[in-house]
């Protein structure tokens, strides 16, 4: 596969490490009353769609950036590649 890195351009996916569903950005509030339940869902349950999938890849043999790919799990077509940091911020993550 070729991942079109938003800054570096097309690179062989072999340079990257795949983590999985981008829902892992949405880490629950540890102080919530049902934190255990929320962390269980966060840590273990996946949509696992047959189709569009937002997922995290790490450019380990490159610029060390985490990326969010929108990739089709049936065709492998990649329609979007974003810097995960930007995605995380846009989803309201802070510090």
């Amino acid at each position: 596969m070729i991942i079109n890195h938003p800054i570096l351009g097309p690179r062989d996916a072999a340079e990257f490490v795949c983590l999985g569903d981008a829902c892992m950005i949405d880490r629950p509030d540890w102080e919530a009353e049902d934190a255990m339940q929320q962390f269980h869902e966060y840590g273990y349950l996946r949509d696992n769609p047959a189709g569009q999938h937002q997922e995290l890849w790490y450019h380990e043999q490159g610029d060390r950036s985490w990326l969010v790919l929108t990739r089709n799990t049936l065709t492998h077509e990649i329609t979007k590649v974003e810097m995960a940091r930007d995605v995380a911020r846009s989803r309201g993550r802070d510090k």
């Binding site: 995290l56 380990e60 510090k95």
Partner: peptide
């Protein structure tokens, strides 16, 4: 060593991006 670095980058970029 590699795994810890990768996971720390994940924490830095994806979980707490404004640190």
């Amino acid at each position: 060593a590699v795994l810890v670095f990768r996971r720390m980058e994940f924490a830095r970029q994806c979980l707490w991006p404004n640190m």
